[in-house]
Structure formats: structure tokens, C-alpha cells
Design a protein around this nucleic acid. Structure first.
Lengths: 334, 334
DNA sequence: ATCGGCATTGCAAACGCGTGCAAGCCTGCC
DNA sequence: GGCAGGCTTGCACGCGTTTGCAATGCCGAT
């Protein structure tokens, strides 16, 4: 097998009878090439099967076209939906996504960012985890742009996209009391993410305003199993709640399943439930969960828009998006 | 803002008082450097914040460390689980995943592979879609390795990983008759993927062997909604089935929901159901679906093992894996 | 006929790195 | 002391691009 595997611009140039610069310019939008040479170059390139080497191009231009997505729990519905949207829209903008999975091991975000730097990614998008402030500074120092989605850190420099979690919490609280619920509860995870805590805060605040106090329990991570455990804990209490806002749809699904199958409760008659994220399963007829839709498409759109800006227009920027309430039948009335 | 943003090996060399080759060798495993210079280089690199430029390294070595994952429907549970496993294991093997989303538009797989070639990816892993034979040859001609997962194409050259879909189909058929079911059915999508058709084929074959004939319906893609539609069609028939094997867990979930909530059937008493993939929702207590587990971890392990082999050991290779049957309560008995 | 201006093209220098080759150094042995 | 041999190290070239600069050619205007 010949080790000469890729065809270079040089060879295309020779075949087309032009200089290497000509073929380079042919593949550079906006460069000055006459129509005739362009045509000859394109033909030669086609015949030889030439493809611009983006590694070399990135080396020259100091811009690789690579955007690193740093993410954990990819297999989770909300995360994968966001991932779908981001890759899709990045691609349409002519960029390409490099995926870094930080599931296992501590310090994996840090190692991930190192990888991003090694490949000279133009930017990193952080979808999970709390990168050290030192790490993000490393990022910025190395000329990377940084966007934090639902991280809400007080970092300097990057684009920050967040949701109006507080307000969402408040809206659900009023919905519950309007449905005639008496004993409100909030089911949270122990993760303590700013967005999760924001929902809790908003819910508690509005409940207080309406003169109700709230049972709060936190357990595990934000998954289905944790929802079941939380149901166990809350539904065996003497002051059993009749309305619970789960910080996450996955929690809500687990909670509902336990409520129905282990405690025989019917929803929404005996128990009102709400979630957050609007994952696909929330619309399944076993759940019909009223919840807040993450504006994944908008999130993605804002990040690629910001990443496509020229350097000087891309200063620090903070965007707050609205999560839309989608009504289904897990709360009475509506 | 200074445009001089990255620190190069040259600068590290100057700071450490050695030649540029020395620092290069320091970061090249197996190269010959004395302990003392190595130490000085590492210190200088640390101080300056040096990171090897993988673009340039890839240019020299003719091997970028990049593996392209070509995928559609990322937000689907099975796909995202496979993606998680692949990125995880690739990372552990020192490679990095580039994600190409082929959701929209025809020919997008082809364009995706072009991108892969431009970035000189060492390999492409195709998780969905049927690339043109010409395209895959282009891939191979450009020195890329290719692995096809559950594609079952008769392509030459790449690694092919498939499941024993036929056998799985057969096992479910026998399980159904053993549970006393009389009217078997197979719910499939119109996608016509080899793996889906394999499950159907195996199911039909074994059913025939056991002296039963099977109702087959195909509709839409392999999602939840399609499952509901299939239930509508099948459960309104005069010869309503009492056991249906759904080609996919998502189909099965939709089917179960429709069967219960629209037709008031109880599972497994009046209707036995089985699925395929073992997505997370299959274990949720609203479904408790008996299904076949995709060996995602093994699939990922085999691909990275094959990709890590030296070129000469990586000839054409076809692997057939076993999908393990996980029993839950959507079939009587067990 | 001369000249200015413009579009096109080639030359060559980068970009940051790996690596073969030869020179240099050190050690051990005769 | 001389020499063989091995480990280090520096030099310089090459990887496939992009791009500034200068040269070329063409056109119309004076």
C-alpha cells in the first residue's frame, strides 16, 4: 500500500498547469482568480480527488473551524436534544463540532479543555460541569471563545446563556394554587446546579407570597431513579403533598411512576405534578407532563451567532431566555 | 489584543535554553531525551502555558487522532447511548471524536464524509444512513478507516459490526408461544434497515416453524408516534393479535401506551409485548418492557480496538455480536 | 504611442511541528 | 591515552496551506 495517500494542492496545480497559489485561491472564497483558471483547477481537483487540508489551513489562518462541545450525560434526553441542535446549526454555519465527554473521573473537564486547546479549537461550549475559573482563563488566554450554557458562573469574558428559572418556578407555584392544591412540594437533586437552585428559589418565593409553605427534598442526581426515591420520601410523610414541582422532567417521570404504581395515586386528581425541560417522554401519554420547554433551538442559534461574529464584536455577553410553559394534563385545570 | 496568542515550541526552546527539536522530542513518547533537558523543557512549557499543536502534528505524522462519528437522530435514546460509549472509549484511547450530524437533507452523509476527509480524520464511524458505495471508496482511497455499525452493507474494506437480529427475532417468537399467545404480530417501521428487517425475518421464520402465522405492519420511522399508529392499525383488526414484537423499544413504548390508554388492554394479561434496544425507558415502571439489550459497550470497544491496530492488521473484518435478552414483565411467564 | 489602473498570477515566506542525519559527548574497555 | 559504541542534541528539511508582494498582461484613455 502506497503511503502517498492524499493529493496535495501541488499536484492539482501541476495537472492544471497553474501555480499552487492559484489552486489555493480557487478554494478560498473571495480570492482573485479568473474564471478560466478556476475552471481548470476545479476539473483537475475533481479528477485527482483533491480535498483542502483543513489541518494545514487551520495552521495558516490561526483558526481551525473547530468548536468543542464539552458535555456529560450525553445519553440524557435534554442533553442529547441540545447536542442535536448545536451540531446541526454549527454545521450549517460551516463549523464542525468536536465532542468531549466528561462523564467519568474528576478533572475531566480540565483534561477536555486541554484537548480543545491542543486542537486549536476556535471555541469551547460548556454544557455541563463547573469548570474551574483558572481553566476558563486558560481557555481565554489561548484565544478560545467560551460559551457557558445554563452554567451561570460569574466568569468574565465568555457568552453566558441562561433561563429565567426563577420566574418559571413562580409560575408553577401559582398554577398549583390556582388548581386548588394545598400542600406544595419541590423535588430537587443534590447537584446544586444554579439552574436547579433557581427553579427552587423562584418556586419557594412565589409560594411564600401566596401564603403557602413548601416541602423541599433533595436527593441524588437528576435522573429517573432519583425521582422514585424522592416520591418514596415525600409520599410517605404525614403531611403528604398534593402538588410537586420536580426540578427536571426525568425526576418527574420517576416521581409519577412511583406515585401511581407504588402509592396508587391518580394524577392529576390526587396529585399535581410539573417538570422542567420538556423532554420527549414528557409528551408520552403515560405521563402527559406539564413542563417548561428548554428553548434548545434558540440556545443553539445564539451560540453560533455569537461564535460567528468578528472578534471585536464578541465581548462579554449574557443572554437570558424564556422557558415556555407547555400545558398538559398533570395539573388540574389549565 | 495581541494576535500572538499561542506559544510555540520555539519559545519554549528558547526559555529552556535548548533547541526546538528537544522540546518536540520531549512531547513525543519514545523519543530520545535526557532526563535533565526533559525536566527543563517541561518546566518552561508549564510556565509559558505551552500545548502541542495537534493540527501541525497531524500534518507531519499524517495522522490526526480524529475520528469522525457520522450520525443522525442523536436525540434518540439508543443513538445517544451509543454515542456516549463511543466518545468515552475513544477518549480513553487518546483519540478524539468529531461529530457530524446528518439529520437534514439528502446526501448529507456524503457531505459529512467530505468534511471528515478535509480534516484528515483517521477514521469514520457510520452509525446511521447508507453511504453510497462510491463515497465509502472515496473514504478508503483517502486513507481513512471505516466502521459501519448495524449497517450490514456489503462494502469492502471496513469493519462491520452487526447483531444477531435473526436469532433475536426467533427467540421472541418462541417466548410468545411459550407464554400461550395465539396471534403473533410484528410491528416494524418503513425504514427497511437491514437490522430491522433481520428481526422481522427471524421472527417470521421461527413463527412459521412453530406453525403460527404472523401479522406484519410497517409504518413511519422507528419512533414513539409510529408505535401508536401501528397500535391503532393492529388493535382494530378483527384478528387482533395478542402478542406483538416491536422492532424498536420506541415503537414498543408508543404501542403500549396506545394499547393501554386507548384500547384499555392490560399488559401482559391481554397483550404481550417485546421490543429491541433496551433503552432506558424500557426499564421505567410504566413499561417494564422485555427487550434485547444493544451491547453498546462492546460495540464501542470493538471499534476502538480495531481503530487502534496498526494499519496492516486492520483488514476487512466483520463482527457479529449477541443482543442479550432482558426479561421484564411485558410478557407472561418468564 | 504612452501611460495609468486593474485584475490576475507566481514567488516565496511563513505556520508549528516531526525526524533523518551527522556531530558531539560520555562511558568503558583495552 | 586511544578508541569503539551508545546516548543526546542540533541542524535543516518537509508537511500542505495561506497570503503579501511584485511582476505580468490587458484595457481604455489621453
Amino acid at each position: 500500500m502506497s503511503s502517498k495517500v492524499f493529493v496535495s494542492a501541488q499536484e492539482v496545480a501541476e495537472r492544471a498547469g497553474v501555480s499552487r497559489s492559484a489552486v489555493s485561491r480557487t478554494f478560498t472564497p473571495g480570492a482573485s482568480v479568473s474564471a478560466s483558471t478556476r475552471k481548470r483547477v476545479l476539473e483537475a481537483a475533481e479528477e485527482l480527488g483533491y480535498h483542502v487540508n483543513h489541518l494545514a489551513r487551520g495552521l495558516m489562518r490561526n483558526e481551525s473551524g473547530i468548536v468543542c462541545l464539552i458535555i456529560s450525560d450525553v445519553a440524557t434526553p435534554y442533553r442529547s436534544a441540545l447536542l442535536r441542535e448545536l451540531t446541526q446549526q454549527l454545521q450549517n454555519a460551516g463549523k464542525i463540532a468536536m465532542l468531549i465527554n466528561t462523564d467519568r473521573s474528576d478533572g475531566s473537564v480540565d483534561r477536555a479543555l486541554q484537548q480543545a486547546i491542543r486542537y486549536r479549537a476556535d471555541a469551547s461550549v460548556i454544557l455541563s460541569g463547573h469548570p474551574d475559573k483558572s481553566i476558563t482563563q486558560l481557555c481565554l488566554r489561548n484565544g478560545q471563545r467560551l460559551v457557558l450554557i445554563n452554567r451561570d458562573d460569574d466568569q468574565l469574558g465568555p457568552l453566558k446563556i441562561n433561563l429565567d428559572d426563577d420566574e418559571s418556578g413562580g409560575r408553577i407555584a401559582t398554577a398549583f394554587v390556582r388548581a386548588g392544591c394545598r400542600k406544595l412540594a419541590f423535588a430537587n437533586s443534590e447537584a446544586g446546579t444554579p439552574s436547579l437552585m433557581g427553579r427552587e428559589r423562584g418556586f419557594l418565593a412565589m409560594a411564600a407570597e401566596l401564603g403557602m409553605n413548601v416541602i423541599v427534598e433533595r436527593y441524588g442526581w437528576t435522573g429517573y431513579e432519583a425521582g422514585k426515591v424522592l416520591a418514596q420520601r415525600m409520599l410517605t410523610r404525614s403531611d403528604r403533598p398534593d402538588a410537586v414541582f420536580c426540578a427536571t422532567d426525568l425526576l418527574a417521570c420517576g416521581f409519577m411512576d412511583a406515585a401511581r404504581h407504588q402509592f396508587g395515586l391518580s394524577i392529576p386528581e390526587q396529585l399535581c405534578i410539573a417538570g422542567f425541560d420538556d423532554i420527549e417522554q414528557a409528551s408520552w401519554s403515560s405521563y402527559n407532563l406539564t413542563t417548561f420547554a428548554q428553548p434548545v433551538s434558540q440556545i443553539a442559534a445564539h451560540t453560533v451567532e455569537w461564535l460567528s461574529r468578528p472578534q471585536e464584536d464578541a465581548g462579554e455577553h449574557s443572554i437570558k431566555l424564556k422557558a415556555e410553559l407547555v400545558w398538559r394534563s398533570s395539573i388540574r385545570g389549565g
